[in-house]
Nucleic acid binder design. Structure first.
Length: 493
RNA sequence: GCUCCGGUGGUGUAGCCCGGCCAAUCAUACCGGCCUUUCGAGCCGGUGACCCGGGUUCAAAUCCCGGCCGGAGCACCA
């Protein structure tokens, strides 16, 4: 009995720093933020922003802010439920923000700063169409509106706010340098007119700041010291620095990482996922095949595994393309010592064991490191996987794991012959298979990644409802619910 | 096209700023072995990389130049 009760060795956590030191970071003074647009649930991609920023805050005793950059009610319209999802998932990832900010609720603040810029003649209302302005930008010429005097500019701004212009008729641009060597930086748009209800603040506003403007102001107001984000926002820094210069502010220290793509999931774009779901290709945002945090949680991943996986990607600027197997490995380290083992027989075939005198009680270890047992009834009629059954030929000796040895004598009728309880002859290898009696089992459906599985599982496993278990020789699965049958979700091998 | 960034084993990563201790770290994958019972788990071991060419130097993955390859931005999206 004690041969299974090996003591649980707590895999000691190496306290090594998982991230490179942050430039000019002082303990206790670091303020960082993760600033998503909540137009869908957090994905593994968002988790990178959450985890890396949070991890640095933890390392430096800093402050972690979650800021919703939700200032576009149309093109990347926020999803009302998603605000809550971000809060939930951050907390689940052990990255509870110290402060939460909603940009859409702070629009008047951005207006004030815009007015100051207009007064300083560092911003101007521009009536060029996109196409017209593109020409100026490409040639490096100033557009005719660039030198509108402050008073007139302010007047136009007032009219914008009052809804006296059509959408697209006028925008506010920040003066940079029309000769800037990178055309992307030249006089960028800070405010535009959009007549559309915002999911959070309704129709209160019709003049909306762009991300570059809103983010620039907020980062300063919030006292952000370090920004780490995707390299797609690299030029933002160059644009925003103009505002910082005009106001005499210091720009935070920045770092940018490349794109992550996961072999099995592809690029992690929220908009794409949304399209797929709306097209009915997935059941919802928590469909286990999806790379959303809620799907991963549903599958039974540990938040620590996700953190470790993300941190292992580092913060380099080159794009990474990694396999989920790395995530699986991280999770396995955490759950292997605690997940109870059970038998799950998919595509079951009923076989008969001839010559088995009486039913026996079979004790099987619950977990090799933790110890404990579960009991199955060893009887004449049992189930095994069709996959296994098909492999065998008459005369083959098979070990029913922890039960007995049997020999296939009549494949046609699925009859085996009892050979003894002793573990001998078949001590290892593919001929040790798992099995299930005809009593003490429940129907089980496993929602898989590539395919789903129908079969039978030990009734014992009901004790682990809600937990992740290992179905031996199958995979780790999370037992989600039990109604007419046990419903499990495939976690990973 | 213009601007910027990056290239370390199959994959990801450390090292590069401040050249030598790097015949290059760690993980994953793969292969092999082990296990009185998961060969789809676990344990142990092994294979495997500095994009190319020049230069500087006693010494270069690390510094410089050129090339090649990859990526990002150039939206009234974030």
């Amino acid at each position: 009995m004690e041969k299974y009760s090996v003591e649980l060795k707590p895999k000691e956590e190496k306290k090594e720093q998982k991230l490179p030191p942050l430039e000019k970071a002082e303990k206790g003074k670091v303020v960082m933020r993760f600033a998503p647009n909540p137009n869908g649930p957090p994905t593994l991609g968002s988790a990178r922003g959450i985890v890396v920023n949070d991890e640095y805050c933890k390392i430096y005793d800093g402050k972690f802010i979650l800021r919703f950059d939700d200032t576009d009610p149309r093109t990347k319209r926020p999803l009302l439920e998603a605000y809550e999802w971000y809060l939930e998932d951050c907390e689940w990832l052990n990255a509870k923000p110290d402060e939460v900010v909603y940009a859409s609720k702070r629009i008047p603040i951005y207006y004030e700063y815009c007015e100051r810029l207009l007064e300083m003649e560092k911003a101007y209302p521009c009536f060029c169409s996109r196409e017209e302005f593109k020409k100026f930008r490409d040639t490096g010429e100033e557009c005719p509106h660039r030198n509108i005097p402050a008073e007139d500019a302010l007047e136009i701004w007032e009219k914008m706010l009052n809804g006296e212009f059509e959408e697209g008729q006028v925008v506010i641009r920040i003066k940079t340098d029309m000769k800037h060597k990178d055309p992307a930086i030249r006089d960028w748009v800070a405010f535009r007119i959009i007549y559309e209800d915002h999911p959070l603040v309704g129709d209160e506003f019709c003049v909306w700041p762009t991300l570059d403007f809103e983010s620039a102001i907020e980062d300063h107001l919030l006292g952000i010291t370090h920004i780490i984000r995707g390299k797609d926002l690299r030029d933002s820094e160059l644009r925003q620095r103009y505002i910082y210069r005009y106001f005499g502010w210091d720009y935070p220290i920045t770092k940018h990482w490349g794109k992550v793509s996961i072999h099995e999931f592809g690029r992690l774009s929220t908009s794409e996922l949304r399209r797929e779901i709306e097209a009915g290709n997935y059941e919802g945002w928590d469909d286990p095949r999806l790379p959303t945090i809620r799907a991963l949680r549903r599958r039974g991943f540990r938040p620590e595994a996700i953190r470790n996986f993300i941190l292992s990607l580092g913060v380099g600027e080159n794009d990474v393309s990694v396999s989920v197997k790395n995530l699986y490995a991280e999770n396995r380290k955490l759950i292997d010592p605690i997940a109870n083992r059970y038998f799950f027989v998919w595509d079951p075939v009923k076989i008969k064991i001839e010559g088995l005198e009486e039913e026996v009680e079979v004790k099987i270890p619950l977990n090799p490191t933790k110890g404990g047992f579960r009991v199955l009834k060893g009887m004449r009629d049992i189930y095994i996987c069709r996959e296994d059954f098909e492999r065998f030929e008459e005369g083959d000796l098979v070990r029913l794991k922890d039960f007995c040895n049997v020999r296939l004598v009549d494949k046609e009728n699925a009859v085996f012959e009892f050979e003894g309880f002793e573990l001998k002859d078949v001590k290892k290898g593919k001929n040790i298979i798992h099995w299930l009696p005809t009593e003490g089992v429940v129907e089980c459906h496993v929602l898989g990644i590539e395919r789903n599985y129908e079969g039978l599982a030990e009734k014992n496993s009901l004790n682990d409802l809600g937990n992740v278990v290992q179905f031996e020789r199958f995979a780790f699965c999370r037992l989600e619910s039990f109604d007419d049958k046990l419903r499990a979700i495939y976690t990973h091998p």
